[in-house]
Write a protein that binds this DNA or RNA. Structure first.
Lengths: 252, 252
DNA sequence: CAGTGGTCTAGACCACATG
DNA sequence: ATGTGGTCTAGACCACTGT
């Protein structure tokens, strides 16, 4: 184990003594995940080990882990262990869109990269990505298709710093899911995201891309994705015809 | 205390022995709320009393209450007690719509009842309300206004059985919020609801009511509301112009 | 079988609210 | 001062997983 790794392992989020112990432990576990001590899919230490190491009872440790499970950071499997959850919300648009194939069943659309440039991002996107004024970004145009028809049009911006390997990748090698690619090729792990949904009317470009009539309603989802440390990794805009759209929620 | 009440208090949900104790206790507490032993705003018994009565430790009882707090059924206040939560989601449309007054600040729209009939509900609504084939329903047409302009048009269906007092109420006495009225006048408490959101294009009637151009995008929220026992109490359709619409969500 | 998380106990003490 | 929920302990035993 090299010094750098050693340092990372020793690093601890400064515990706020005013907080309950289970909160301090929760914060420290998040920190250890953020610095990469455990990655997605890894098992963290056992409850017995952790409670001993932190000097707390198993009940208190379980409460700390309960919080992280509720937040979606960890998952527990009886008899197996506690694991860092791998968020797989490349399919999260299924919250909003129901796509049917010609055969009638729900399908995940395939993806095609239609363009790739390096640009200075507009101010709004630069702010969302927390970039400095002179930083560059990678911009991807991406289409999502079902049965060869474009159902979603995406405009994606990534910090050039951290995603440079994408610049050398042939379009055909991107595959249908970007987040596994970010992880394997760029060592960037998406942990959470914020999405904002609006309804717009199709302009000429979108109407043509989606093959709908101009001014017909279009769903516009803007997503900003973050890693475990809270750094913004991706700004994404997705547009699709409102006709196939449905969203359901329970209220209390 | 009369016999009927006595009976209600003695009633217990048949505990499923295969479930953990904290689940059985959770189920029983829900049942006691559903039969009216405690209503919205009431304090339930203290942790000490309940753990003694159920013959479980405080830790197990707390886990049962934790579940109900997470579900939004109860709220806890340190030093005061644990209370049945009063859901106040007549304002839930703020999840979807942002209304601005002429002055520019967020406002809750006022309400006006525009019509009231007793009808046999269409099959879809009858099913949603779990009514028998020959049951009648009360139908309300309701407008939500800001600065005198209609921003939402609502179509509301209620089981006639349970909501008859509404038939004698003058339109002006309905007020801006329906759920408090259901509770005070009809003794019907809304506990949860399911909402489904779609985007449509305005037909002539809606376009005129909302003062938008025909075929412009319209948000359609369909809500079914339930009491604590899970009985559907209300079927509601709300339509508003998509222009003022925005929805935000965090994903993990 | 050994090891993991899941359930549960029988308390103790602390922090906050109210009279 | 009293009573409430909030935190925490130091275990025990159970249910499930994989060897």
């Amino acid at each position: 184990m090299n010094d750098q790794m050693n340092q990372a392992l020793k690093t601890r989020a400064a515990p706020d003594e005013r907080l309950p112990r289970y909160q301090q432990v929760r914060d420290d576990l998040v920190h250890r995940i953020a610095v990469g001590e455990w990655g997605p899919g890894d098992a963290i230490h056992t409850e017995a080990e952790l409670s001993l190491a932190y000097g707390i009872s198993t009940g208190t440790l379980r409460k700390a882990i309960d919080l992280l499970v509720a937040e979606g950071v960890l998952t527990r499997s009886q008899g197996k262990g506690t694991f860092v959850r791998r968020p797989r919300f490349d399919s999260s648009l299924f919250r909003f869109f129901r796509f049917k194939s010609r055969a009638g069943d729900d399908v995940l659309p395939t993806a095609r990269i239609a363009g790739r440039t390096v640009e200075a991002p507009p101010a709004a996107i630069r702010d969302s990505l927390a970039l400095t004024a002179d930083a560059l970004a990678i911009r991807l145009a991406r289409w999502r298709l079902i049965d060869g028809k474009t159902v979603l049009a995406e405009d994606i911006w990534l910090p050039k710093d951290g995603f440079e390997p994408l610049l050398d990748l042939p379009f055909e090698s991107f595959g249908d899911l970007l987040y596994p690619l970010y992880e394997s090729l760029c060592k960037q792990v998406v942990a959470t995201a914020m999405e904002t949904l609006r309804v717009e009317q199709a302009d000429r470009a979108i109407a043509k891309a989606l093959d709908v009539s101009p001014n017909s309603p279009v769903i516009h989802v803007q997503r900003t994705a973050f890693n475990f440390a809270g750094r913004p990794l991706e700004w994404r805009s997705t547009k699709g015809a409102a006709a196939g759209f449905q969203y359901q929620i329970e209220i209390r």
